[in-house]
Computed example of a mutant assay.
Amino acid sequence: MGVLAAGMLLAAPLAADSLMLTTESYPPFNFETETGELDGISIRVMDALLDVAQVDAEIRLLPWSRAYAEAQSDPGTCVFSTTRTSEREDLFTWVGPLVENQWHAFVLEGSDVDAQSLEDLERYRVGGYRDDAVALFVEGRGIPVDTAPNDRLNARKLAANRIDVWVSGEHLAPWYARQEGIGELRSLFAFNDTVMSLACHPETARAPLDRMQEELDAMRADGRYAAIVEDVLDSNGERND
């Protein structure tokens, strides 16, 4: 399975079925490698969907807030991997799920933080990612969150004792902890099971999205999807991207 270069045009040009796709750095689902290519579970799945559906697309790696805003404002623009929530359901047309993502409250391995639920976090300094669904969910439960412009910075904040607890995805936080060399993380508890999908402006042409959804369903049924997940986690989980 090949990976996609940032800004690369995919498949045969089809003006009526063209998409602008935006994404963020959110490993292991989507991230940029040292050579400037885009890789990750969602990237590889998207590559396959666009190829089979014969959709022409450009993928741009952007800060999350900008990527999300463009999909809300520009017909023909989609953003991934986007957590599908009830608040967002009617804002987009969806293709998914691309990945599953369980949310956890993490601490450093040697931490003496004692918490079993979100309510227990009220007495601790909690770090999250600005405008991310995880941080918004925690804030919505009345827990103040010290948000960073990207989630990788929370690894540094945790190591520097600027936060006590880091709320993030089950794969993302350990990945960034390895990249930053801060040591092992320990999950205090999991607090939500979510799916992440392709979220498209509601005025985006439906036909190419339907073809992509049909292929995604087929990939999940015949084992190709599971093979991509296993390959990405095995090949990239311990390396620097």
Results as ranks from 00 to 15, higher is better:
36 G>T: 03
38 L>E: 03
38 L>R: 08
38 L>H: 07
38 L>Q: 02
38 L>V: 02
39 D>W: 01
39 D>K: 04
39 D>N: 15
39 D>H: 09
39 D>P: 08
40 G>D: 05
40 G>K: 06
41 I>L: 10
42 S>K: 01
43 I>E: 09
43 I>L: 03
43 I>F: 05
43 I>Q: 06
43 I>V: 15
43 I>G: 03
44 R>W: 04
44 R>C: 07
44 R>S: 05
44 R>M: 12
44 R>N: 01
44 R>H: 11
45 V>C: 13
45 V>H: 01
45 V>I: 11
45 V>W: 00
45 V>N: 07
45 V>D: 08
46 M>N: 04
46 M>D: 09
46 M>V: 15
46 M>F: 06
47 D>Y: 15
47 D>L: 09
47 D>G: 13
47 D>Q: 11
48 A>V: 08
48 A>Y: 00
48 A>I: 07
48 A>C: 10
49 L>D: 10
49 L>H: 10
49 L>E: 09
50 L>Q: 06
50 L>D: 11
50 L>P: 12
51 D>N: 10
51 D>M: 07
51 D>F: 05
51 D>L: 13
51 D>W: 05
51 D>P: 05
51 D>A: 14
52 V>G: 03
52 V>F: 07
53 A>Q: 08
53 A>R: 05
53 A>D: 03
54 Q>G: 14
54 Q>P: 10
54 Q>N: 15
54 Q>Y: 11
54 Q>M: 06
55 V>G: 09
55 V>E: 03
55 V>C: 06
55 V>I: 07
56 D>F: 06
56 D>P: 03
57 A>K: 04
57 A>P: 12
57 A>L: 02
57 A>W: 02
57 A>H: 03
57 A>D: 04
57 A>M: 01
58 E>C: 09
58 E>Q: 10
58 E>Y: 08
58 E>A: 12
59 I>V: 14
59 I>N: 02
59 I>P: 02
60 R>W: 02
61 L>R: 06
61 L>C: 05
61 L>M: 14
61 L>F: 04
61 L>Y: 02
61 L>A: 03
62 L>R: 04
62 L>M: 10
63 P>S: 00
63 P>H: 04
63 P>T: 00
63 P>E: 04
63 P>G: 00
63 P>R: 08
64 W>R: 03
65 S>V: 04
66 R>W: 01
66 R>M: 07
66 R>T: 05
67 A>P: 00
67 A>E: 05
67 A>R: 01
68 Y>F: 14
69 A>S: 14
70 E>L: 14
70 E>N: 09
70 E>V: 10
71 A>W: 02
71 A>T: 05
71 A>S: 14
72 Q>M: 07
73 S>Q: 08
73 S>T: 06
73 S>N: 10
73 S>F: 10
73 S>Y: 08
74 D>T: 04
74 D>L: 11
75 P>W: 07
76 G>S: 01
76 G>Y: 01
76 G>R: 00
77 T>Y: 08
77 T>C: 11
77 T>A: 12
77 T>I: 02
